[in-house]
Amino acid sequence: MAEFTVNPLRFDPYKNFKFRLKWDGRYVAGISKVSALKRTTQVVKFREGGDPTISRKSPGLNDYDALVLERGVTHDLAFEAWAAKVWQIGVAPGSEISLADFRKDVILDFFNEAGQLAISYKIYRAWVSEYQVLPDLDANANAVAIQHIKLENEGWERDTSVNEPTEPSFNSTSA
């Protein structure tokens, strides 16, 4: 089991607004929202024939919820290029999907308020199941245009090589 270093001076939980998402070895521009990492284990109920009053429970299959990524519409083609690997319209029959590389491992890096890497998760064998290029458009609205992709995945795990950072202290001088 991995050992974690613990910062005895940190009492506050991390805030949820400093994160970056990486695939293909680079951070993806402009990600403003990532849905929760969630795993559900099915419950298998069974009953022994000689015990009519109690049903027993044991763990069954695990299911990992899809990840939804949101960002403002930009000229960065990362979302579109990945979504096109799952389905491309207008190509020759039999080549609509890129079976060789439509799945990617994704890294979700989580930073403390000082911008130091605090926690990292590896998300395995993700692929785009839904892609929204543009939101509903409204000429009377005052909002950022948001696009999103939904990533199915086959599990995730915490990168235990990322230790809790030593947080900076700023020296103040009194005048």
Rank of each mutant, 00 (worst) to 15 (best):
67 L>D: 12
26 R>K: 15
6 V>S: 06
1 M>T: 00
21 L>Q: 12
61 L>P: 04
120 S>D: 08
11 F>Q: 01
117 L>K: 14
97 I>G: 03
127 W>E: 04
1 M>A: 06
115 G>L: 12
119 I>W: 08
135 P>L: 12
94 G>Q: 00
50 G>S: 10
18 K>P: 02
141 A>N: 10
125 R>Y: 04
48 E>H: 06
95 S>C: 03
97 I>K: 09
47 R>I: 02
44 V>Y: 01
143 A>P: 00
16 N>A: 14
15 K>W: 05
129 S>T: 14
173 T>C: 04
24 D>W: 11
14 Y>H: 14
154 E>Q: 00
57 K>T: 13
43 V>S: 13
135 P>H: 03
95 S>D: 13
93 P>T: 01
108 L>T: 09
127 W>N: 05
48 E>G: 00
127 W>P: 03
39 R>Y: 13
18 K>W: 11
47 R>V: 08
37 L>D: 11
155 G>A: 10
154 E>P: 00
3 E>M: 03
62 N>R: 13
143 A>S: 13
54 I>M: 06
113 E>P: 04
102 F>L: 12
97 I>M: 10
86 V>H: 00
25 G>H: 15
148 H>S: 13
21 L>R: 13
169 S>P: 09
133 V>S: 07
1 M>S: 07
83 A>T: 04
76 D>I: 13
27 Y>P: 15
108 L>P: 03
83 A>E: 02
130 E>S: 00
149 I>R: 03
107 I>F: 14
75 H>W: 10
34 V>Q: 04
54 I>F: 09
165 P>C: 05
111 F>V: 14
108 L>Y: 09
126 A>F: 07
133 V>A: 10
145 A>L: 04
100 A>S: 15
22 K>P: 11
88 Q>E: 10
166 T>Y: 01
116 Q>P: 14
78 A>M: 11
96 E>D: 08
35 S>F: 03
166 T>G: 05
139 A>C: 12
58 S>P: 07
15 K>Y: 04
91 V>E: 03
153 N>K: 05
99 L>Q: 11
34 V>W: 02
90 G>N: 02
45 K>G: 02
44 V>E: 07
21 L>V: 15
17 F>I: 07
44 V>R: 00
94 G>D: 00
86 V>P: 00
38 K>E: 15
50 G>F: 07
20 R>G: 15
170 F>P: 02
107 I>P: 09
174 S>W: 15
167 E>W: 06
72 G>T: 06
102 F>V: 08
70 E>L: 06
4 F>M: 01
60 G>Y: 03
14 Y>K: 12
46 F>Y: 06
138 D>Y: 01
3 E>R: 01
61 L>S: 11
159 D>I: 02
80 E>A: 12
98 S>Q: 14
64 Y>D: 06
134 L>P: 01
49 G>K: 01
119 I>G: 02
77 L>N: 12
169 S>V: 15
131 Y>F: 10
98 S>M: 11
104 K>F: 09
109 D>I: 12
173 T>L: 15
166 T>K: 09
22 K>F: 15
78 A>C: 11
49 G>D: 04
107 I>A: 13
56 R>T: 05
157 E>V: 07
164 E>V: 07
96 E>R: 01
138 D>A: 11
66 A>H: 08
76 D>P: 15
34 V>R: 01
71 R>W: 05
29 A>P: 09
72 G>L: 04
